[in-house]
Computed example of a mutant assay.
Amino acid sequence: MDTNDLTALMNDRSLAYRFLARAYRTAPDLAFIEALRQGGADERPADDPLEAFFNELAVASAEQIRIDVAADYNRLFLGMGPHPIAPYESVFSSAEGLLMQEARDEVVAVYRSEGFAVEDAFNLPEDHLSLELEFMALMAERTALSLEAESPDEAERCLSVQRAFLEDHLGCWVPAFCDAVSEQARTTFFRGLARMTNEQVEADRTLIASL
């Protein structure tokens, strides 16, 4: 793979991670749904995890879709259902299933080492899935910028950070999290998103290891 292809791949990865991060950060608003509707008109990959959702979006009102998806988000992740799924690494990785455990401290250390600042407005533990995905997006973007600047050593360092983060963090808990979401989600959006997230992380582990 030449430098231009690798740069494009890193930019594509960054966009994918930013989309996933946004989807888990807060309940989707109307602007998010409308953006998905516009994007759904573009050619999509075969076996798209969100195909069923886009089919619904093509025939239903954006507002109704927003209501349904927001309700599912609240039920799944905000404790408004009987079996909420905490989108935090600590809950899935600690023996006690509690927040603010060792995993949270570890990701904070990684964030700080890379100058990744969590917004004050995001008043939740730092091992929230959205933040871990946003961190990966940032590191993929930095890899692309390093390649464009002809700094291969820095690009390799950024890839090493991503490889370690996938192995030590995302890869350790995202599969179980996505399985739980797939089982409990009521909307095609979150069922598809869970599959997309798991596929992204698993494929990325293989990809980054190969690089």
Rank of each mutant, 00 (worst) to 15 (best):
I33Y: 00
P84Q: 09
F189S: 05
E89K: 06
E202H: 02
Q64V: 07
G39M: 15
G79E: 10
P49W: 01
E56Q: 14
E150V: 11
L9A: 11
A71H: 05
L166S: 01
A16R: 14
I33P: 00
S113D: 14
A149H: 08
E156Y: 11
S93E: 15
M136A: 00
A23S: 15
N55Q: 14
P82K: 12
Q162P: 13
E63K: 14
R75W: 10
V91F: 04
N123I: 05
R13G: 00
A140K: 01
A8F: 06
A209Q: 14
L78R: 10
R13P: 01
E202L: 11
V110R: 06
P125A: 10
G115H: 08
Y17F: 15
A149V: 08
L6H: 04
E132W: 12
L129W: 01
T187K: 04
V59F: 02
D2C: 05
V107N: 01
S160M: 15
E51K: 10
A8Q: 10
A71Q: 09
D72N: 05
E96Q: 14
V201Q: 01
D120Y: 08
G192A: 06
L98K: 12
E156Q: 15
F54E: 00
P175H: 07
V174E: 04
E51F: 02
F177H: 05
T26R: 13
L133N: 02
A185K: 01
Q162G: 10
T7K: 11
D179N: 08
E119R: 15
A140H: 01
D105P: 04
E156L: 15
G81T: 00
A23V: 12
M139W: 01
E141Q: 14
I67R: 13
